[in-house]
């Protein structure tokens, strides 16, 4: 049994954004926005509905509408339609549920109006496109398409359309994953395995490998070569706990306790996955120091059950 005390500071972490100096070189992948924590979104007042994005039937039948539909198709079938940029088996919709519409699943309608975003920590401005490039590089373990590519243009147009009527620059309830507070006694990986075996393995597989139909991934991998890499936001236990509590088991969101969500998130994120593409000097320790130490609660470079995590998978 392995018990870890979670820093009581976790709630404050959104403020302590990881100190990452983004290189300026054009081809340097670290130029792209990293997946450091989003600032917490305001809570919803009781009875207040979440923002309602427009309906699919309201997409206009013109060149704009065509790009909206193309963006939605790419968002749902990223691996099939943009294979050159996806290194694992994931699709954007796997973590941004209901085509990027569902509250507390980092919905696109809440994201789009918040960019360009200024970050005090590194005195840099991050654009919406850079944020999506970050998801390509880390969540999709791939290669980000160029900022002016047809793919990122279609995804931007789709997000813009979803946020029709949303206020610009005002954080809306439902943004991000609304993480549960860290449980009092810390999280426990062994207890997380019990939750996993009982509630998650039926879909995501006994070994987190996911399930496919033919070549198409249906239940996404949670660890291993087909999953997100060590640089992805989902590798943070606190972030995964938020996603899981609101959205998993599929169709039965909001049924796990804070404790269960943290435990199972820790269990998932205590497994190997593709290496952080920002690996510093081939050293896990240096990479931890530079990118992971102050990035929420995560196990990169941490020794669990006698093995140092962060080895990566080819």
């Amino acid at each position: 049994m392995q018990s870890h005390l979670t820093p009581t500071l976790t709630r404050l972490l959104p403020l302590l954004l990881a100190g990452i100096s983004l290189g300026a070189a054009g081809a340097d992948p670290s130029r792209f926005d990293d997946q450091s924590q989003l600032p917490g979104a305001p809570a919803r007042t009781k009875g207040q509905p979440y923002f309602q994005p427009p309906e699919e039937r309201d997409i206009p039948n013109n060149a704009f509408g065509d790009l909206v539909r193309r963006g939605q198709d790419l968002f749902m079938n990223t691996k099939a339609l943009a294979p050159d940029y996806v290194g694992n088996e994931m699709n954007c919709v796997n973590c941004h549920i209901d085509r990027g519409r569902k509250a507390n699943s980092a919905p696109l309608w809440a994201a789009y109006p918040m960019y360009p975003a200024y970050r005090k920590k590194n005195n840099k401005v991050n654009t919406f496109v850079e944020r999506m490039q970050g998801c390509f590089q880390f969540s999709m373990n791939g290669k980000p398409p160029a900022a002016d590519s047809e793919i990122l243009t279609a995804l931007t147009v789709y997000s813009h359309w979803l946020s029709t009527g949303a206020p610009v620059g005002k954080s809306l309830p439902g943004r991000g994953f609304d993480e549960p507070p860290p449980p009092r006694g810390g999280y426990d990986i062994a207890r997380g395995k019990v939750v996993y075996d009982k509630q998650c393995a039926i879909c995501h597989g006994a070994d987190g490998e996911g399930q496919k139909v033919g070549v198409t991934s249906v239940f996404p991998a949670l660890w291993g070569k087909d999953s997100y890499n060590w640089g992805a936001g989902m590798h943070r236990i606190n972030t995964a706990a938020g996603f899981i509590q609101h959205n998993m088991p599929l169709g039965k969101g909001e049924t796990l306790s804070d404790q269960e969500a943290w435990d199972v998130a820790a269990f998932i994120n205590s497994h190997e996955r593709p290496q952080d593409p920002r690996l510093v000097n081939g050293s896990i320790d240096e990479t931890r120091k530079r990118y992971h130490e102050n990035d929420g609660v995560n196990l990169y470079g941490v020794v669990v059950n006698g093995v140092k995590l962060g080895q990566g998978i080819k």
């Binding site: 749902m76 079938n77 691996k79 033919g214 198409t216």
Partner: peptide, 10 residues
């Protein structure tokens, strides 16, 4: 028969 080397889109 469906060509299993092709993706099935959502």
């Amino acid at each position: 028969a469906f060509d299993e080397s092709q993706h099935r889109l959502r």
